Amino acid sequence: MRHQDNPDIQLWLREAKFLQKAAQSDSLSQSLPVLRRLLESKVLTNITLPELKRQSAMIQRKHLLHMLAAENGERCWADLKKIVSAAPQGTILPYSIEQLDAGYLVHWFSSISEAQGYTEQHGGKVVKVGSQAAVLPE
């Protein structure tokens, strides 16, 4: 199946498009979280957050796809795309898609290991969000 025909790949591409719009938004509450993620994932280096905000027009879709790959433990978008394409449909989704059904009962943790510890006692599903994690109810 070509990636154009894969609905999961299309979700990742839409996520990158949404994140690009947010990163370039005049709203600080929309742009800063995405800009911080770009810097934290080391997609863009040798630039400060204020400078990146001023130059947000330079952010391309490829930067967001690379960031999403890095946040999911992959070297680049091509590697993540291969993994998503090979996985059963609906098993590897952007965290924003997974959160849609969760509502407001999402618990946030500063690390994946903390989130996994929580799920061992209370149940739920761990979703990686950069270096942080959320636990969604099952």
Rank of each mutant, 00 (worst) to 15 (best):
D8I: 08
A87I: 03
T119N: 10
A23W: 00
K17A: 15
E40S: 10
R2T: 15
A86Y: 05
E51W: 02
I112C: 07
R37P: 04
H3Y: 11
L52M: 05
R14T: 13
E120Y: 03
A134H: 11
E71M: 02
D5V: 01
G124Y: 05
V127E: 00
R61D: 09
V135K: 04
S29H: 09
G73L: 01
E138D: 10
S41V: 06
M1I: 12
F109C: 01
D101M: 14
M67K: 00
L136D: 05
T119P: 07
K125A: 08
Y104F: 12
Q99V: 01
I59S: 01
E114H: 10
F18S: 14
P137D: 00
L136Y: 11
V135I: 04
S111A: 01
G123S: 04
A87F: 09
K42D: 06
K42C: 04
E15W: 10
S56H: 07
L49Q: 15
D5N: 04
Q99L: 00
L105D: 00
A78P: 03
K128C: 04
L49R: 11
Q20G: 04
E71D: 14
E40G: 09
A133S: 09
Y104W: 08
G123I: 00
T48E: 12
H63Y: 06
D101W: 10
C76T: 02
Q116F: 01
S113R: 08
F109M: 05
A86D: 15
I59D: 03
L52I: 04
V106Q: 05
T119C: 14
V127S: 06
K128G: 00
L64E: 07
A134G: 11
F18P: 05
A133N: 06
P137N: 05
E120F: 01
A70R: 13
L100S: 06
A69E: 07
E15T: 11
Q60E: 14
W12T: 00
Q55E: 11
L32Y: 02
D8Q: 05
M1S: 11
A87E: 09
A133L: 06
K62Y: 01
C76Q: 12
K21D: 13
K21M: 13
Y104V: 14
A87G: 09
E74C: 13
L11M: 12
V126N: 08
E51Q: 08
A69T: 01
L38S: 04
I9R: 11
D5G: 04
M58V: 11
S131N: 14
P88S: 15
V129A: 05
V127N: 01
D79T: 14
L44V: 14
P33N: 13
S113I: 15
R75L: 07
